[in-house]
Amino acid sequence: MSRAHGLRYRRRRLTDYVARGLGTVATLFGLFWLTWILFGSLSQGLHAINLAIFTQTTPPPGAEGGLANALLGSLMMSFLGVLIGAPVGIAAGSYLAEFAERRPLWRETIRFVNDILLSAPSIVLGLFVYTLAVRSVGHFSGWAGSLALAMIVLPVVVRTTDETLRLVPNVMREAALSLGIPRWKVTVQVLYRAAAPGILTGVLLGLARISGETAPLLFTALNNQYWASSLDSPMASVPVVIFQFAMSPYDNWHELAWAGAFIVTAFVLLLSVGARAFLLRNRVEATS
């Protein structure tokens, strides 16, 4: 064994140490931003939270007020978005997993398109809904906002439904079909029951995703300084109000924006962490 061999060995070891070190540094880098962003916005927002946030409407510059109308608007549009998007998504996901076995090309095309829709820029969907439901009607509305949000929920639910149904063991289908039960009943009464936790997780993740969405609401629901009289009129939402208030030069608007940021972040994180924990618990129960 020559000296050159030892040198080369040491160089290889050194490279390895450096690579491991850089990997650790990269992870710390990611965690650093997470902590800064999360604790930065949560602590700033916590200071701005008070009862008026939940009872008063968004104020004009310089006046006191809250976010009550925006909270209600967000709640209504998100709820409606899920109500429209989730059933369609569950149906489409069921088709892909259960009813498309004779058309593999068609099935893969839909899966492919759905995956693209899943990552497509949400502002583009906002533009689409603008031409579909704002320009044709002539005014901005809560309905248009809900529709835009539904299009964001849709691919999330399609994907999770498709994946969860494929995880249901084939024995269940065979057992049910051998009893002479029609396929739609097998799907609805047997498979959906087995897949319910996964599908529900998908719906909750979809809800988490749209709760903070801003871009598609900017030119569908627009904004409203007061209580919206109905879903047919422009409607305030927390993210859009955050955008408007944070970009303004007024200090009290900034405070309200931080409060809104706190509510949205806390809600979204609790929802997505809760959904995953729920899924995890049910999976464990299913296997044990």
Partner: peptide, 24 residues
């Protein structure tokens, strides 16, 4: 835990990134 924490970054709404970016 570390993997879950990194994935948490993806869960933060983009408007929060924007606001944090502007003010912090």
């Amino acid at each position: 835990p570390v993997g879950a924490a990194i994935e948490l970054l993806a869960g933060i709404p983009s408007i929060i990134y924007g606001m944090w970016g502007l003010f912090s």
